[in-house]
Amino acid sequence: MNSPISVPSALPPRAALLMAGSATLFGMMAVAIRFASKQQHPFEIAFFRCFFGALFALPLLRVHGIEILRTRRLGFYLVRCAAGTVSMVCGFWALVHLPLAQAVALSYSTPLFVTIGAVLVLGEIVRMRRWSAVIAGFIGVIVIVRPTAADFSSATLIALLAAAISGMVTISIKYLSRTDPPDRIVLLTTLLWVPLSLPAALTVWRWPDADIWPWLILSGALGTSGHYCWTRALRMAEASALAPLSYLQFLVVGMLAWLLFDETIDRYTAIGAAIVIGASLYIARRESRMAREHNLVAGIGKADPPA
């Protein structure tokens, strides 16, 4: 007799709330970064986000003990965190120099780069449907960027570089998650980001004024809290089911940017974001379906143990 095949359950309400909370927290972090940029350089903001984020992550040590830091893949963590630091610095640069909604919309191109990286690095087979989604997604990116427009900004290319490197980091998480628990990944990554982000900050160092410190502290608290909610949500439900909720960040950022900075979402950003989000959602759903089919095939022929 074949072993029973599990059917994916409905999205747990708690997982949905955690993912919605994560998207909201990351959106608010973008706003804190913009306020901090009134004085501080993006390189410094990235360092302080990492520093205060690490402080807010330290309670995980109390929960798990020092053993949570032990890993056989420290070298891999260093490479991953170095790439993540570059992605963060580029992303913060984009948040400071672009309209917030446009910067966030371009960050949603990360799944497109993940698909390409999965083929080049992981050797995954991607068929025509997913390639079509990738092409559609990059068309959406072109709509957002509008490289021939008079107001084209080179900061959009920095935002795309951040998304591309973030795709590499996402692929690295697939490796780490095979052996390391989520809290170890979050804690080690957060701690390693601090020294790795410091050299760039020192090149433009200026001590913040008193009114800037709250925004720097808040960026670290919001970033770490967002990652905490994100990792917990992914433990409870499939990434493809949670993906639509992650795009709440675009709405949160758009609303806050309008209220606080008098920024509006232009039609090109809205149309391009819709295309990129649609393509990313299709890729996520397709990957989930392929994974379930693979598990189904792997489960066939396995006999039940004797009674």
Results as ranks from 00 to 15, higher is better:
78 L>H: 00
74 L>D: 00
236 M>Y: 05
49 R>L: 14
298 A>R: 14
267 R>Y: 06
227 H>V: 04
56 F>V: 08
213 W>C: 10
205 W>D: 03
87 S>D: 11
66 I>F: 13
104 V>C: 03
92 F>P: 11
199 P>D: 06
9 S>Y: 00
210 A>N: 12
37 S>C: 10
251 L>Y: 03
203 T>S: 06
131 W>D: 05
280 S>G: 15
273 A>R: 00
22 S>F: 00
60 L>T: 08
273 A>T: 04
187 L>R: 02
191 L>T: 04
114 V>S: 03
296 L>M: 04
171 I>K: 08
114 V>H: 12
98 L>C: 07
191 L>M: 14
180 D>I: 00
76 F>P: 02
57 A>S: 15
154 S>P: 01
127 R>V: 04
68 I>H: 07
69 L>T: 04
95 L>M: 15
119 V>D: 12
218 L>I: 01
200 A>R: 05
102 Q>G: 04
199 P>L: 08
44 E>S: 15
290 M>K: 11
244 P>S: 01
231 T>H: 14
230 W>C: 06
171 I>L: 15
178 R>T: 09
19 M>T: 02
152 F>N: 02
136 A>W: 03
19 M>N: 07
188 L>V: 13
3 S>A: 10
213 W>Y: 14
143 V>R: 05
29 M>L: 15
252 V>Y: 07
283 I>S: 11
145 V>T: 12
245 L>W: 07
7 V>M: 10
201 A>F: 11
45 I>A: 09
33 I>S: 11
120 L>S: 13
164 A>Y: 10
188 L>N: 11
288 S>M: 09
39 Q>P: 11
19 M>R: 02
36 A>L: 13
283 I>P: 05
135 I>A: 15
207 W>T: 12
215 W>L: 06
172 S>E: 12
79 V>M: 14
31 V>G: 10
104 V>N: 13
68 I>R: 07
202 L>W: 10
205 W>Q: 07
5 I>D: 08
93 W>L: 05
15 A>G: 13
62 R>V: 12
156 T>G: 05
9 S>A: 13
212 I>S: 13
101 A>S: 14
171 I>H: 08
259 L>H: 02
235 R>G: 11
76 F>C: 01
255 M>G: 00
189 T>V: 02
52 F>D: 09
74 L>V: 05
185 I>R: 07
305 P>G: 00
84 G>H: 05
104 V>D: 04
119 V>R: 09
203 T>G: 04
268 Y>K: 00
212 I>M: 13
223 G>C: 12
162 A>E: 08
306 P>M: 06
88 M>A: 12
269 T>M: 05
228 Y>D: 02
291 A>V: 00
75 G>L: 10
233 A>V: 01
172 S>P: 06
122 L>Q: 15
